[in-house]
Design a protein around this nucleic acid. Sequence first.
DNA 1: TATCTTCTGTCAAATTCATGTCATCCCTGT
DNA 2: ACAGGGATGACATGAATTTGACAGAAGATA
Lengths: 238, 238
Amino acid sequence: MASTFDPSQLHILLVDDEEDVVEVVSHFLSQEGFNVHKAYTGREALEKATPDVDLIVLDIMLPEMDGYEICKRLRSRVETETIPIIFLSAKDEEDDQIQGLMLGADAYLTKPVSPQVIVAHVKAVLRRSGIEESRTLQVNNLTIYEDEYRASLDGKDLGLTLTEFELVRYLVRHPRKAFTRQQLLETIWKDAMMVTERTVDAHVKNLREKLGSFAQHIQTVRGVGYRFVQEKGADSEE
Amino acid sequence: MASTFDPSQLHILLVDDEEDVVEVVSHFLSQEGFNVHKAYTGREALEKATPDVDLIVLDIMLPEMDGYEICKRLRSRVETETIPIIFLSAKDEEDDQIQGLMLGADAYLTKPVSPQVIVAHVKAVLRRSGIEESRTLQVNNLTIYEDEYRASLDGKDLGLTLTEFELVRYLVRHPRKAFTRQQLLETIWKDAMMVTERTVDAHVKNLREKLGSFAQHIQTVRGVGYRFVQEKGADSEE
DNA sequence: TATCTTCTGTCAAATTCATGTCATCCCTGT
DNA sequence: ACAGGGATGACATGAATTTGACAGAAGATA
């Protein structure tokens, strides 16, 4: 994922089953210097939606799997959950638009729409999401370098293992929200339903150890699971 | 500028010279719990665009100064340059839309547009400007953060246990409705029919203790069980 | 109003149950 | 085979829940 607004460094995934649309829009985006990738079916879209993609233009009506479903799946995968999505739709029914936005779309365009408008939206969305959002998460004295798969505390590298890294990253990305062990397993241990919940505990323990004093931000929610909070002591009343 | 998706903490500035539009949209936004501020002219808009405003819904056609101009000025002031803006326009000419996006708009809606769509866009824009959505229940000074498994009174965390939390949440979700102890057991203690009804009492007691003065809203319905009411002493119905 | 009956509030002790922790085993890639 | 990370099961610990007894409140009866 790129870090400056240099179109030649940016990858756009274009998903639509109408080849004409894909070709025309692709042409205009290429004109602007973007790297364009094309997909014509839902499955293809999911395959090509790698973390290297900076933005997805997604048609709602697709064979095999509709845009909403694709969006949902992308949002549930850690590597793709933050990729901006622009919905494209022939329907202009209100409910569809609302549903699209609720699923986390960054824009919802109703066909017919000119390629120029699409390009304008692509730029606008990229400007506000891909660009100024550096690929690092900063919380107090903790820094998570997403691209580098490492994290540091007060500048000192923590030497996290992959699992530990994904664990903090996920928790920090969703501040305050409590997750059950099961949820964490499903998100971070993508494949495994064959993994004990105790496993999560073990990793949380190791993580906390490495986090040192910062560990207080990883709270246990008894009966539920764990959560990350920025302010400590939000658990006890005064 | 607020940091959690708690509508009651979020301020929206609504700018349009058509009073009807402002009123209607305002109503829907308030319905969602947002704090709405209104402006009917460009100058008024600039005055009310303080750093405390989290998002601006801005009509293009305005007396005194058009939306583009306002946008430019906001973007050039340090305190306001990052406030997300949603443009509203009667024109649907492409160029306008492109210009709007180039100026840094976060969305561009073409009238006529339903209030619900505006609300959906407001939420979407807020969500991606770093504010994570979390479902919350608000009743007077009590806030229940469903995703976070915690509740606070006047902003102070109550430190509820899981059972207590689920108890208030359930009662608050069904205002005025009285539940028997048995019903509560079946709902909250999913598995157990082997639990004494006295157990419920105990938890209600602990809950009331933590709720302090708010406890008066958790009423005992003699011979039945418990219920939550928003107004105290609500013996008479409407 | 006086009395009886039933239901609820409360408390502390007993028990259950979730989590923290550790030692060990397993797997994967070198 | 070895090293490093990951998974697991057994325990200890302590928090949360449950319970039973009893006092007190609310209703019912007359």
